[in-house]
Design a protein around this nucleic acid. Structure first.
Lengths: 231, 231
DNA sequence: ATTCACAGATGATTTAAATCATTTTGAATA
DNA sequence: TATTCAAAATGATTTAAATCATCTGTGAAT
């Protein structure tokens, strides 16, 4: 696989691109390492040492936290331009695993290099800061939702959250398996099945193999309207 | 109330202090506005416009998100040196309210000024970035906990979380009322009462008026040991 | 001192969701 | 086309937690 150079990189959402700084381009280009990951491959392992920052060039990734009895919680889904692997001050380990949901390309920049980049480009540091800030807001919203929503509402919320990753064409088709969706909603697969069947009965969505097609997004929005979330 | 100057500020944890830069001190000193808040006073209101960043000089604050039927979720507790009011790109509104748990002093810096400070002090931007990153990690851990812990475990987890704010003397005394603690744990006050009574019966804690004294921290840790959280 | 108000505790009941168990479905393979 | 297999759906049961209701103790106001 040939490495993509930062100058000719097509990723519009990458924080490096957003900064639009020639010096930064060439510096990151020197230190970054772009890797290809197949579907369902681990990008980072929970418990491993934090060595740097991952910039998602292309692909979808689930960020999961493992719990008791093999249970896992999907804490976040990421797409092109997102970051994984919060930098640590030193010697820290990842509190989460990151696993690709599809074939992906990801750029890695080690701790020291990214620190240098931050110090020479306050704009970059600012952008990444804002990214974390936004994710923190989302995460805190999710805390409230998990504590207060019913199973049905959790499913609808998760569908509308996951949908953002699959906005390619006009038909909204979410390709995510039951287990991952249940782990995202924080419920079990049986409950998920029941809710999906119910929504299918109401013609809000259809359930062909390996995908979920949303027909009536507005009705989904109505279900969780009282929580007034902006997707 | 006399304004504290940044040079003579005693706050060891303030991000401005951590940067240890004379130019930054005088700049922030010019633009900041220090205010005194009485116990149970709102610092920011959910839904209001984001105008800047709040640096907690002294005091404890609960960050809450309001839900259905007057239910509220405490998403985070903050103390000296922490930040509230994640900056928005523009025109954004607070997704949360921040309310003091005790008399507090808080410094406010408007959006434009803090942006200038970030651009001239990448170190500051980096520190704040790391702060958000850390909070995001905590928040994501809480997502998992809310989804997987039992009511008892949630209470214990919340006690150990809240405890950090009250580490003054050798006896661990948490001054927080039942409603706030229940909102933090994501449960109702009745369940909270039951669990606290049980823990009291087991001599793990005692419950004098307006406080919770932890006698056996290790036993609390044991209860949630399977989740291996580091407090 | 007496009432009032409220935080907290506890008991009884209901309800939602998890779990356990079984069946269905559809794709891949022989 | 039959067979296998795993994912998904559905049914039955159990369980945990929410809700509703009542009671208790403490401090403030009259």
């Amino acid at each position: 696989m040939k490495e993509v150079s930062c100058d000719s990189c097509i990723s519009k959402n990458c924080f490096i691109q957003v900064c639009n700084d020639e010096k930064l381009f060439s510096f990151i280009n020197e230190v970054k390492r772009t890797s290809f990951y197949r579907k369902k491959q681990h990008v980072v392992y929970e418990g491993e040492q934090v060595l740097g920052l991952y910039f998602i060039l292309k692909g979808k990734i689930k960020v999961v936290s493992s719990g008791l009895f093999g249970k896992t919680q999907v804490v976040r889904l990421t797409q092109d331009g997102d970051i994984i692997g919060h930098r640590g001050y030193g010697g820290e380990t990842y509190p989460i695993s990151a696993i690709t949901l599809e074939d992906s390309e990801i750029c890695f920049v080690d701790n020291d290099s990214i620190y240098t980049a931050f110090m020479e480009n306050p704009k970059l540091a600012f952008e990444v800061m804002m990214y974390y800030s936004k994710e923190l807001r989302n995460s805190e919203a999710k805390i409230k939702n998990l504590a207060q929503m019913s199973v049905c509402e959790k499913v609808v919320d998760s569908l509308l959250y996951a949908e953002k990753l699959y906005l390619n064409n006009e038909t909204i088709s979410i390709q995510i398996d039951r287990q991952d969706l249940a782990d995202l909603a924080g419920i079990n697969t049986e409950q998920l099945s029941r809710v999906l069947s119910e929504l299918k009965k109401e013609k809000i969505l259809s359930l062909p193999k390996n995908e979920i097609i949303i027909h009536n997004r507005n009705q989904l929005l109505e279900i969780i309207e009282p929580f007034n979330i902006t997707y």
